[in-house]
Nucleic acid binder design. Sequence first.
DNA 1: GATGAATGAGTATTCATTCAT
DNA 2: GATGAATGAATACTCATTCAT
Lengths: 226, 226, 226, 226
Amino acid sequence: MPKQTFFNLPPDKRDQLIALAMNEFADNDYESASLSRIVARAGIAKGSVYQYFDDKADLYLYLVELARQRKSEFMAQRPMPNRGMDLFAYLRWQMEQSVGFDLTDPQVAKLGYRFMRAPQPIKSRAIGQAQADAHAYFVKLTQQAIRQGSVRKDVDPRIAAFMFSAVFTQLADFLMAYAEPDPAALAQGRRRAALKKKAMRAFDQIMTMLERGMAVAPAQRKKERR
Amino acid sequence: MPKQTFFNLPPDKRDQLIALAMNEFADNDYESASLSRIVARAGIAKGSVYQYFDDKADLYLYLVELARQRKSEFMAQRPMPNRGMDLFAYLRWQMEQSVGFDLTDPQVAKLGYRFMRAPQPIKSRAIGQAQADAHAYFVKLTQQAIRQGSVRKDVDPRIAAFMFSAVFTQLADFLMAYAEPDPAALAQGRRRAALKKKAMRAFDQIMTMLERGMAVAPAQRKKERR
Amino acid sequence: MPKQTFFNLPPDKRDQLIALAMNEFADNDYESASLSRIVARAGIAKGSVYQYFDDKADLYLYLVELARQRKSEFMAQRPMPNRGMDLFAYLRWQMEQSVGFDLTDPQVAKLGYRFMRAPQPIKSRAIGQAQADAHAYFVKLTQQAIRQGSVRKDVDPRIAAFMFSAVFTQLADFLMAYAEPDPAALAQGRRRAALKKKAMRAFDQIMTMLERGMAVAPAQRKKERR
Amino acid sequence: MPKQTFFNLPPDKRDQLIALAMNEFADNDYESASLSRIVARAGIAKGSVYQYFDDKADLYLYLVELARQRKSEFMAQRPMPNRGMDLFAYLRWQMEQSVGFDLTDPQVAKLGYRFMRAPQPIKSRAIGQAQADAHAYFVKLTQQAIRQGSVRKDVDPRIAAFMFSAVFTQLADFLMAYAEPDPAALAQGRRRAALKKKAMRAFDQIMTMLERGMAVAPAQRKKERR
DNA sequence: GATGAATGAGTATTCATTCAT
DNA sequence: GATGAATGAATACTCATTCAT
């Protein structure tokens, strides 16, 4: 956890530092990320980082936690459309939000995904449960769906959870590459609406595949979509 | 590419150097991997590395290429059982091989997977096509399958390819964790046969899911399995 | 010298700060001792130290002076038993007091002994005369003793002073190790009385050796002991 | 232990580095001594130190060992005058050598004395036994002397050992200050012979005091001296 | 062709001190 | 009078790379 001094900082400065640090840890592994680079870009003294954080790991884990929060907030801001929907409708909605976040704030998203593959020692210092949670969460969802009859009884929830998280994890990267092969154009933010539409169609197809793969009566489910 | 001097080395020495370097780059990302550690373990002079390779990146990319080759060779060594089988039968066979390789040579496999997430600058220097290849390959396979009528016409081959590679990439890790939650027991190599069986059943279910998700008549496909 | 602000502090706070700083400088030499550690433990602001003292050296030298005073006070609090006793009886009494102080307040004593070996630049800023004093004091005592006939005329007072201070300086450390080889037991404060007795017998023997070494008629002196 | 690379250095360079490092560790505690200062003075690259030594402690302990050797060699070079001499004659000879060394090579001697007071963790990595040895050695000598009848039976060998080592440790410092109050003159090496003579007379008196303090028949022993 | 010493910029972290609030 | 954030030089140590032998 950051020290109080960090929260006493003027918000501008604090936000800038967070942003620069996020970029550094999004673009580099924990080991390779460099505090020196961060402070150089932020134009602050090296020692100052240690006024705000205990050490490198403390800063990193704070950023990870922040990334988790940002995503949660993003996803919470649009309420679930329909309380009684089934697993696939729910996941469809959720992945849509998730991908939306990844496209909106790609650096923060990258940080999050990179954390999932971080070495265990650093991970075990994390406060939240991030990754393990994701798996456990998918397992629970699938179990519910089986009970509710929307997923086949012979599906192993752990395996379903794996499918979801494997796809989830790499979805944003794929959708960006899929929708816009030329990164330069995307960087300029041109035709964003068109891109989003294309990405959404791809996403839709992916969800349909997963649904058909697990659902009790795939043919019927298709109608409920959206 | 290694310099000629490297290929002039006595095979024993060369192989040992490769093995040690593979381990280093499998356990650390590119930036964190240390040439010093490699030469220390290999008992060779630091300067020698620069007789064999241009620089760190040159060595790394050679190892990546080598890992790709090793996997190809492993997979080629057991011939496809049935020439005329459809996409899913074929992928099932192929993934089985891939997972088999990952379990047989985990370090080399790790190197490969780590490369997929390497920073772009280093990736773009790669000779082989590794990752892009995998995608293109799946696309081609899917296109064939559509033509042959085993995959729905409304499936976008690129999307199918994404599904395959997303699942592929994380399969070995999952299967190992799934089949044996306790890593200590696994290290002891006990009950390896039982583990493999359990992993194979999980794998089977995953393939079925993918198949159901894309195939023309999912219900019928199930019978052909194995 | 501390600034006036330091003496304006509430006594509790001042004493606590002194105690913590004493410990830090007792356990580390001047260079390695850390103001940061002190203020962290004391829960005061870093800047405050500079309100009280000019700099690190100022604080340190104040503590050294304080340690000297504490020892003086400790030794003054039990009056000399016999006004007319000779040098050795007097030193015996004095060393007893000194060792008593070292055992009573080991941290303060440690600070003092450490100061004796401090680098010259820092030492020369000292206000009190601490070490030089000790030597001068022993010289004076010996000169008196020679005049009174209890020490040989051919003894160089400076040399005798050296002997006394060499033994003095290392006495407490030795006695503790001698009386109780197992530091764990000592920490528990068990058998403190027994230890003290054992230490005192050793101390007695040391004094006898010094006495025999310098006294006019060593054989006779022995009777006066205790 | 230094790495081989260190011994491969040209002797001039190696000796200079040793000399500079000796000075640094003679003038500063282990913690306070600075590798940066050493390399700056030596005009070599920082990294080079790590070509020669594992780390700071490795360098330090090597220097300590070297200091021990230097002293041993110095002391061995003048053979013991008389094989059958008693404890005090022997110690007199030995201390004479020791002081001679301290005066000849004060920096090396300082390093040695400073090591005796080094914190336990660093000490326990030492190869030689240095300090513990000194005590044990004096104990053994005293025991022999008691058996041979030259030391009183009621003398505790451990206490005698303490006296010897307390005096030993501080002897050189004292003798230098005693013989020459003005350090500037001493630095110039002027009147070295006169100084030595004065120091030796002081030393002689110290030995006599110790002898009288412990010997069976102090009055008689005096004749045997020298 | 191999060596391995030398280099100097790089790393995270700690420090005493300053100064605006 | 107290605070505590900011500073930048200091620390030990690691690194990839070069080059004379």
